[in-house]
Design a binder for these strands. Structure first.
Lengths: 147, 147
DNA sequence: TTTAATCTTGAGAATAAGTTTCAAATTAAA
DNA sequence: TTTAATTTGAAACTTATTCTCAAGATTAAA
């Protein structure tokens, strides 16, 4: 069984367990998202669906995203200009973004140790952590050299 | 000379260097912000100013904030419900925010080890780190118990 | 101190992401 | 099927932030 159909099956379960109804719109949106290899926002996702001939509405996209976040398939990675960007989580750990304040480039790393420490800190505070954003603002190598 | 008047003097210099004009509105806003001991958003700041009898407009508050960020006196610390929250930078270490997605409460800690590790990671990537945002989203103790 | 050029202001209109409303359509259980 | 409950699309709504513009303030020079 493919990874995608495995996830689709799990999502159906998740929806049912919540006493909700499994609809073709929800499945379409999930499947489209699983194809994305990069960050995406609602508009991009909606446009991709429309171009494929899907009749799904933007409202449904907005309504489905929180479900997918709750189910753990996607996470919000950053906000920019009052727009939220998401990405597929899968088993990827939330990662660190380095944002250069000069050239606006975004680089990323995954630091397992840091991830663990963050989980610990959350638990010390009696929080049930779901996800996190770590953005480091600074100046990248290229800009420092004046490239 | 007090810390506040020192900053006010520096800000005036900053404004002049940029070829802008130093106005009473800009000074009022800066002074009010310097009094804040906690996170604030534009609305809170605007309300505080109005209660004191200030005639400053919300538009001016919105226009002044980017200048204060650029000058380094304040920084955006997180966004919630499409609203930005700021705090006075001074020499405070960037800290971690725990944001409860249910009750919207924000708690914070400072973790020196985490701060160091973040600096290290940045240097490994050849970045010159200036500041960072670490936001952990989850469910707080109270909400988990259903209070 | 007057002038003139430029910038900033307040008020309200505009913008745009995200949410809500509601009638019609779909789902799911009996 | 029948029926109750949920979901959908479309459009209206909400709300933070930005923009517009005429009137007022600041600045440097005369």
């Amino acid at each position: 069984m493919s990874v995608t159909s495995e996830i689709v099956k799990d999502f159906k379960n998740f929806i049912k367990k919540k006493g909700l109804k499994y609809t073709s719109e929800r499945e379409e949106i999930l499947k489209e998202i699983l194809k994305s290899k990069q960050h995406f926002d609602v508009d991009e996702l909606y446009m991709k669906l429309r171009k494929k001939g899907s009749k799904v509405s933007k409202a449904s996209v907005y309504r489905t995203i929180p479900l997918l976040v709750e189910a753990g398939y996607i996470q919000e990675v950053y906000k920019q200009d009052s727009r939220s960007y998401y990405e597929v989580t899968l088993d990827k750990l939330p990662h660190i973004h380095f944002i250069c304040i000069k050239c606006k480039s975004v680089d990323e790393i995954i630091d397992d140790y840091l991830a663990e420490r963050i989980q610990e800190e959350a638990k010390n505070k009696n929080y049930t952590p779901l996800t996190y954003h770590l953005e480091i603002f600074g100046i990248c190598h290229k800009c420092k050299k004046g490239v």
